[in-house]
């Protein structure tokens, strides 16, 4: 679903496409297998746990019917998917083994002296490793912002998160960061508090 064609002026510096399954010509990755195995475990656990609510009660659909049915289906379907991926992986390895003397096509596709695709810079000039770190920082920042809500309130904590995101993750200047945070704060206060009257939590400090 993702990864549509790029347009506009930035198309000549299109972002790097990285998908777990998308290694050219390759089979499923370990992450794919682990993710599907986690789903299988989740389904199995839900089915077992759901059984306690009663699959059938007096011969009729019970509260546990849907959890058991869906959990069981997830477990079976995920197991089937793991088997399919395992077979595909084996076939890919056998294929690679046959092709080995010819050389790695991906390596051959990268001209000498250029960085590997994953090392290409994105539109912000970041490498793949830096983008990975940026995601971890965004996760952490959002989590920290939510933890701060009981103390400084929702509007302030989210505005603070915007400030740090623009300043630290996007490496913009302090003026741009403060302006972005202030614009968000003003928009949130005006629309959600003043116009819509949403009771946003102001936290223990009760500032906004």
């Amino acid at each position: 679903m993702s990864g549509g064609p790029e347009g506009g002026a930035g198309a000549d510096r299109a972002p790097v496409q990285v998908t777990a399954t998308g290694v050219a010509g390759g089979g499923p990755t370990r992450a794919d297998l682990v993710g599907t195995a986690l789903l299988a475990v989740l389904g199995l656990a839900a089915a077992v746990y759901g059984w306690r609510y009663g699959f059938l009660v007096d011969g009729q659909v019970g509260a546990g019917f849907l959890p058991v049915a869906t959990g069981g289906f997830i477990a079976v379907a995920s197991t089937a998917e793991i088997v399919r991926m395992g077979l595909q992986r084996r076939a890919t390895r056998a294929d690679d083994h046959v092709r080995a003397p010819v050389g790695d096509e991906r390596a051959a596709a990268v001209p000498t002296g250029q960085a590997a695709p994953d090392e290409e810079l994105d539109v912000f000039g970041r490498t793949a490793a830096q983008r990975g770190r940026a995601i971890a920082v965004v996760f952490g920042l959002l989590g920290a912002a939510l933890l701060l809500v009981p103390l400084i309130g929702l509007l302030l904590s989210l505005s603070l998160a915007v400030l740090v995101l623009v300043l630290v993750v996007e490496r913009k200047g302090p003026v741009a960061a403060v302006a972005s945070a202030a614009a968000c704060l003003a928009f949130g206060w005006l629309v959600f508090v003043q116009v819509l009257g949403a009771p946003l939590p102001s936290g223990a400090l009760g500032l906004v």
């Binding site: 993702s2 790029e6 506009g8 930035g10 972002p15 990285v18 539109v123 970041r126 983008r131």
Partner: peptide
């Protein structure tokens, strides 16, 4: 962010 951001 993972893909490298979208150009405007």
């Amino acid at each position: 962010i993972h893909r490298g951001g979208e150009a405007p």
